[in-house]
Amino acid sequence: MSTPISSNSQISQKETTSATKNKGGLEGIVAATTAISKVEGEIGRLIYRGYNIHDLARTTIFEEIVHLLWFGHLPNKRELEQLQERFATERTIPENVMVTLRSLPASTEPMDALRTAVSAWGAVAIQGKPTIDQAIALTARFPLFLAAFDRLRRGLEPLESKPELGHAANYLYLLTGEIPSEEHVKGLNAYLVLLADHGMNASTFTARIVASTESDISSSIVAAIGALKGPLHGGAPSKVQDMLREIGTLEKADAWIREAVSTGKKLMGFGHRVYKTTDPRAEELREMARLADANGFVFTRGVEELAIAILEELKPGRRLYTNVEYYSAALMASVGLKGDLFTPTFAVSRVAGWSAHVLEQINNNRLIRPEAEYTGPTDLAFKPLNER
Results as ranks from 00 to 15, higher is better:
residue 10 Q to N: 15
residue 13 Q to T: 15
residue 17 T to F: 13
residue 26 L to W: 08
residue 38 K to A: 13
residue 40 E to C: 10
residue 43 I to Q: 12
residue 47 I to V: 15
residue 50 G to C: 13
residue 53 I to Q: 09
residue 57 A to L: 08
residue 58 R to L: 14
residue 58 R to V: 11
residue 61 I to N: 11
residue 63 E to I: 08
residue 68 L to Q: 03
residue 69 L to P: 01
residue 70 W to S: 00
residue 73 H to Y: 05
residue 75 P to C: 06
residue 82 Q to T: 14
residue 92 T to N: 08
residue 93 I to S: 07
residue 95 E to M: 02
residue 109 E to I: 10
residue 111 M to K: 06
residue 114 L to P: 01
residue 116 T to W: 08
residue 129 K to Y: 03
residue 135 A to W: 00
residue 137 A to F: 01
residue 138 L to Y: 05
residue 144 L to Q: 14
residue 153 R to D: 01
residue 155 G to W: 09
residue 156 L to S: 11
residue 164 E to M: 10
residue 167 H to M: 10
residue 168 A to T: 03
residue 183 E to L: 10
residue 184 H to P: 06
residue 185 V to R: 07
residue 186 K to L: 13
residue 195 L to V: 13
residue 197 D to M: 06
residue 203 S to M: 10
residue 205 F to R: 11
residue 205 F to S: 09
residue 206 T to N: 02
residue 210 V to P: 04
residue 223 A to Y: 00
residue 242 D to M: 06
residue 243 M to L: 01
residue 251 E to P: 04
residue 256 W to V: 08
residue 260 A to K: 11
residue 270 F to H: 06
residue 280 P to R: 06
residue 280 P to Y: 09
residue 287 E to Q: 14
residue 292 A to D: 03
residue 293 D to E: 07
residue 294 A to K: 12
residue 304 E to N: 02
residue 305 E to Y: 07
residue 326 Y to F: 15
residue 326 Y to A: 00
residue 329 A to Q: 01
residue 331 L to H: 01
residue 341 L to Q: 06
residue 361 Q to T: 11
residue 368 I to R: 03
residue 369 R to D: 02
residue 379 D to G: 06
